[in-house]
Amino acid sequence: MTTSNPQIGLDLNRAAPPDQAIVVEAKDLRKSYKNFEAVKGISFQVFQQECFGLLGPNGAGKSTTIRMLNCVSPISGGSLTVLGQSVTENIRLIKSQIGVVPQDNNLDTDLTVLQNLQVYARYFNIDKKEATRRADEVLELFQLTDKRNNKTDEISGGMKRRLVIARSLINQPRLIILDEPTTGLDPAARQVVWQQLRLLRDRGVTILLTTHYMEEATQLCDRLVIINEGRIMAEGKPRDLVRRLVGYEVIEMRLPEAERQELLPLIANRPILVEEAGDMLYLFGQQTHAFHNLTLPEGNYRLQRHASLEDVFLRLTGRGLAES
């Protein structure tokens, strides 16, 4: 039985389209703590007006990378430039032009929704009149106008999340960096956030986000990298990654051990990749008609579906829970 090995030739396709400026550039970026290296030399570029995704399991190094991008964690090696400035130089300049959405909703719970935005705007030296105008604008954008004068501990979790995202726009950033923006949101609220992020991108804002949700990455990201254990495993457009690394269609099935042996000859001459994971068996059809006229042994469970980013993700990062 061939157990697939995610040995992927990286087709990085680095050349920037001529009209697109580089907004973020990481070269061999590293971060090490006392006795462990969280980011082990990653390189990527984010172009203007692009939505770029950083995908990876828990502990992959996503949040560490985000913290370095936000200039709150010094880099240990390599280089990182944000909006043309190195994060080791004048970081006030970088911070004044980026919008940051952290994983936690770190709002001021004693203040109202509007006051949260006003106080935050003040850190950017935006005067009160202008801050209030912008606050009303972003509240409208994220459908929070009704809650303008509520205290933030009176609004729902989903609203808090939207408020944190709205807050990140108060300085009219050129780049927004979001760490798991829609974690904890219900499907409707998630749609609102996605729509607004797409609108912002269309207005010229560059977006960099991390997510666990493959659907989110598929919906939003123009390009993405998948990170595992501090290294980039793959980079590309979501659709291309799916085609290149898993294919077109997937059959997932549970099959008794004995019958698995019968499977191999059946698919031997077809462009099919097989992967075992626990009691599950995955067949990845790497061309459009890979499964055409194929009769497989009857398993206990069988599903044929389109290949998705989730398949790419799981192939590259492993199906085990590697949280340490």
């Binding site: 006030r92 911070k95 952290p102 770190n106 001021d108 935050y120 850190y123």
Partner: peptide
């Protein structure tokens, strides 16, 4: 608990 410091250091304030 409130993570206010994290919110502030994401802005130009050090």
């Amino acid at each position: 608990q409130e993570k206010v410091f994290d919110a502030i250091i994401a802005t130009p304030v050090s």
